[in-house]
Amino acid sequence: MSLNESTLIELGIGIIILIGTILGFLSAIGFIRLPDVYNRAHALSKSSTLGVLFVLLGTFLFFLLVEDYFSIKLFLGIFFVFLTSPVSSHVICRSAYRAQVPLAKESVRDDLKEVLEKV
């Protein structure tokens, strides 16, 4: 089987998108298996953001290299997801803490509690 250049490019893009989907799957497993809301947000925000970024990057590279089209919408989408997804996770965790959602049993320290009591 002969590998020319475009086949190699499409193979690389496929691998990038596969990495993205695997990261999304791992974050879904973490969402099921971790004990409390903070650990779940930790698993869900980081790895699913990275997964979505990989999928968007693969699509962006496909349109750029194969179709010769610089998709500014995908570029902005990558930047926008990278910017807003961690912030949404931060806001969800913060409102959960303020609503006194309990930490997991295994937790040993709660530094934010002392700070909030001081205020």
């Binding site: 910017l83 931060h90 806001v91």
Partner: peptide, 14 residues
């Protein structure tokens, strides 16, 4: 909520 405010300034432009 300084994080939310700062990110909103960038996100609204986009």
């Amino acid at each position: 909520d300084v994080i939310l405010r700062t990110v909103t300034k960038v996100a609204v432009v986009i």
